[in-house]
Write a protein that binds this DNA or RNA. Structure first.
Lengths: 330, 330
DNA sequence: AAAATCAGTGTAAACGCTTACATCAAGTAG
DNA sequence: CTACTTGATGTAAGCGTTTACACTGATTTT
């Protein structure tokens, strides 16, 4: 490994000068500069980011905590954050938070140990209290898909309630009145808020099912739903994975979407375009949100000066993507 | 930020002793030990991994290069690698290699700059030469989904040709003789090898279409396929995404799978279970492969001693997953 | 009783870099 | 001609750790 010293020796200057040309900070004569540069080339010198971070007390990594990268939703989120880190010459440190409070904490702790002072975290299991204490300790920590009033300016979140309302309004507009909600059974706010938004717009008694927010969960819910098919013309699914599960199970039983029953999803994930029929769904603009979160974190922790015109709105609105899974009900 | 010095002062010992208890290396009296530990607790001390790495010249990060984490295939790969890093108390550094040689190189370079001496890389665009020079420079670099004979013991790859053969044999077994291959148009070995394996087992003239290995590519290929439908009873798709694209387009046109035409995929990705009908496909055991690659890299670079019983086989075999997209052709 | 061993601890030099400060020559102002 | 700038560079002290080595006092060996 070649170090500043090697370069300095070859170029016949001090390490300080080498450092100056590497960072192009301070004044350095053109000639010296090119001497140093050619020395760097000859030796194939690569500044050691770790040492650099230690000495300058500036961190060059951005930490990301998500529950599971194998889930395409978080894959998309990670990918968006990575685009920002690449743009700003930072490195992405990925920590998986998993499904319980303890692992989420460990994920954050390991980022702290890495000296990471800018991070975006997606946490659903940690209590507001623990999370708040981290927010207090780490000024560069930004929350995504979560809202804590006290730290409003460091949260990027989705208006879930509005999403529920949009779904209801759309189904009403399409002439549906008897609707089943297929919701997530996870103990987080999102399903509750979506349900609330939905029911505010359509207060009649709806059928209600809960299951895990996955394809299998959708199939499971569909099994229960089947018994009430005569009383239901449409279903509002918690997310696209569940929606596709429902469709799949129904079509196994010979029930066609949207001819026999309509369905609307949430997320606009990969699934949505890939299934038959293509899914009408609510867009969760996670890519924009993730980029915003990353830039916000960078700008708070002072690592980014270039991209300072951030969106002023921290609460994102889902919007309708109309495809073929909802039909008109006369 | 509290440092060893703070802890040392509070505990009334030297920094060396603190370091010894943190790493529990060397001998230290039980009493001193507990004094130090309680000091650490009081101060909420967290060893700085960066400084640690610098001083000890041991690296605690594992670098991963993949083209795109938003693709669930690579999401799965990343997730598997992360499981290993968590098990071994390392951190995952994620670099996106994108779709061209230059970005792939930059991804590796940025990992080197991070002082990362153990890494697994998925590269399809870099030439054997550049890749070899990196392999020479970085003993801890392990290749996944690529084979370079000279560095055989640092490659984890899939037997694509065998996969092609399996597909052919299965379709033959199901009575199919007139088959279309819907292949990837990317200039990498994988599609060529799968085709070769397929054609070796089924040498009759097959229809052949190429497109991007995505859902859209599958739809595109299906459009061409439709004209030859009378001469084809089954299709072998390069991957599940394409397979689903084909199914989707065909079903739009009222052609049913597997009643009117059979289809077999590759990967056993998320899609495979989610589409209608569920896809018969060839399993790409990427999760095992990824874990193997990560452990291999760790054990080469000496960062892992615990998990040393690695599989001896570096070439993985795809295998058949039978679902409902292939019917018997009489 | 002197020598050797050993557990337990401290001292200080690294690791590869940044940066405040000092230095110095040359140019400019008075 | 002195005094002050200013551009260009070097010196050396850190950043938070680890670790080779040295030291001490106690216990064991001869």
């Amino acid at each position: 490994m070649t170090t500043v010293k090697d370069v300095a020796k070859l170029a016949g200057v001090s390490t300080a000068t080498v450092s100056r040309v590497v960072n192009n900070s301070g004044l350095v004569n053109k000639e010296t500069q090119s001497k140093v540069k050619s020395a760097m080339q000859q030796l194939n010198y690569r500044p050691n980011t770790v040492a650099r971070a230690l000495a300058s007390k500036k961190c060059t990594t951005l930490g990301l905590v998500v529950p599971d990268v194998s889930d395409p939703f978080f894959g998309q989120l990670a990918s968006s954050v990575e685009q920002i880190t690449r743009l700003t010459n930072m490195q992405l440190l990925l920590s998986i938070g998993g499904q319980d409070e303890r692992s989420e904490q460990q994920a954050i702790e390991s980022l702290i140990a890495q000296n990471c002072d800018t991070m975006v975290v997606h946490s659903k299991k940690m209590s507001d209290e623990t999370l708040s204490s981290y927010l207090n300790e780490l000024p560069g920590l930004v929350l995504i898909n979560r809202f804590i009033a006290e730290f409003q300016s460091r949260c990027i979140w989705l208006n879930n309630e509005y999403g529920g309302r949009l779904a209801a309004e759309y189904l009403i507009h399409k002439g549906h009145k008897q609707i089943a909600i297929v919701n997530s059974c996870l103990e987080i706010d999102d399903p509750l808020l979506r349900k609330k938004g939905f029911e505010n717009a359509l207060p009649s008694k709806n059928f209600y099912f809960e299951a895990t927010p996955t394809f299998d969960g959708g199939e499971e819910a569909a099994n229960k739903l089947i018994e009430h098919l005569d009383k239901v013309t449409a279903v509002f699914a918690y997310n696209d994975a569940m929606a596709v599960g429902v469709i799949s199970k129904l079509s196994e039983k010979g029930i066609r979407v949207p001819e026999d029953i309509s369905i609307i999803g949430f997320d606009d994930a990969l699934f949505a375009r890939v299934c038959q029929p293509k899914l009408t769904t609510l867009k969760y603009p996670i890519d924009q949100m993730a980029k915003h979160a990353a830039l916000l974190s960078l700008s708070i922790s002072g690592s980014n000066t270039e991209f300072s015109n951030l969106p002023s709105e921290y609460c994102y609105q889902p919007y309708l993507i109309e495809r073929n899974s909802v039909s008109l009900n006369e």
